[in-house]
């Protein structure tokens, strides 16, 4: 929470900033293509999808939960939206329908967890399989291509010199930050993660707010899916597979505690950027994608050790 940052968490974030700068410096020395305006914009644009998902994931993890279904929700909402567009629905309506579908899938997650008392890991694992299965069934495994220009603007358009995905991601981060640091809902989310029993005893309708974070996560996954499909001009039923990994990685690298109640979007932003720069740098250096996984794993482990040391 903006108002309660301790010296410790400043140190933690400061450590992350240094890690980020060191990473950037190393890549600058290793590749002359890294530190250019076009590459920087590229990195930012690539980080938008993960960034938007990670905002929802941060809120989920702050309540000591987890959402494994983000990639599958992204996939299902993407193919459904693309299908509606091809059927000639107006862009605004199709996008709204897709976003509502994402929120509803998140609502189902939330109800399974609060009313069904299923642990978040299991509930969202189920949703992960279910939504992917529905996406494959819906499309019969075939990609949906050829989308209207009005829709493609979401992924490929510009506002002034700034790519549209970056504009959207910045808005999502700003709204998320405002929600967590400045609103009642934000304070309740931290309280819930900190001590769910005390939260309930204080009269907070805990189930409502736990459900809410999964709704937000589902909604933002759908939004990220729109941008991705608009950029690629194609909705594959397997799109988004494995995206939960990068989102969770960004959140934990950013210092949000899996135990809930501690952390926030400032750290997640850095986490997203570190992962994006890492992906980009390994690409520029022509590192084989096999090693890429290894390096990513090592970096995540190092970041977690850094947080541990700061505690």
């Amino acid at each position: 929470m903006g108002s309660t940052r301790s010296l410790r968490s400043y140190l933690q974030q400061f450590g992350l900033v240094i890690a980020f700068l060191l990473l950037a410096l190393t890549l600058t020395l290793l590749s002359n293509r890294f530190l250019t305006v076009s590459n920087a914009v590229n990195v930012l644009r690539q980080s938008t999808i993960n960034g938007i998902i990670a905002v929802g994931m941060t809120m989920v993890i702050l309540t000591a939960g987890i959402d494994l279904s983000v990639g599958s929700i992204l996939g299902l909402t993407a193919v459904v939206t693309a299908d509606f567009l091809q059927r000639g629905w107006p862009v605004g309506l199709a996008v709204a329908a897709g976003l509502v579908l994402g929120a509803v899938l998140g609502l189902i997650n939330g109800l399974l967890i609060t009313k069904g008392r299923i642990p978040p890991f299991i509930a969202t694992l189920g949703m992960m399989t279910l939504a992917r299965g529905l996406a494959l069934t819906y499309t019969q495994g075939r990609p949906i291509t050829g989308l209207p220009a009005g829709f493609r603007f979401l992924g490929a358009g510009f506002i002034g010199p700034v790519p549209m995905p970056i504009v959207i991601a910045v808005l999502v981060f700003a709204t998320g930050y405002l929600l967590l640091a400045r609103t009642r809902v934000g304070e309740y989310i931290y309280a819930l993660g900190n001590n769910p029993t005390a939260a309930r005893f204080s009269g907070i309708p805990t189930q409502r707010y736990i459900t809410l974070v999964y709704v937000i996560s589902g909604f933002l996954s759908a939004l990220a899916g729109m941008i991705l499909v608009a950029r690629l001009d194609s909705a594959q039923p397997i799109v988004g597979q494995g995206y939960e990994f990068d989102a969770i990685a960004a959140v934990v690298v950013g210092g949000t505690s899996f135990a809930g109640g501690e952390g926030g979007l400032g750290g997640t932003l850095l986490g997203v950027l570190i992962i994006a720069v890492l992906n980009n740098g390994l690409n520029l250096l022509n590192v084989s994608s096999f090693y890429e996984q290894v390096v990513k794993g090592v970096v995540i482990a190092l970041a977690l050790l850094l947080h541990r040391a700061a505690r």
Binding site: M1, S3, T4, A191, F201, E262
Partner: peptide, 21 residues
Amino acid sequence: KEQGLFLGMAVRENITIGILD
């Protein structure tokens, strides 16, 4: 500790959480 407090949160937040709305 188990049922009353938000140990990781500030004194202000602990006092006013009930009246926030």
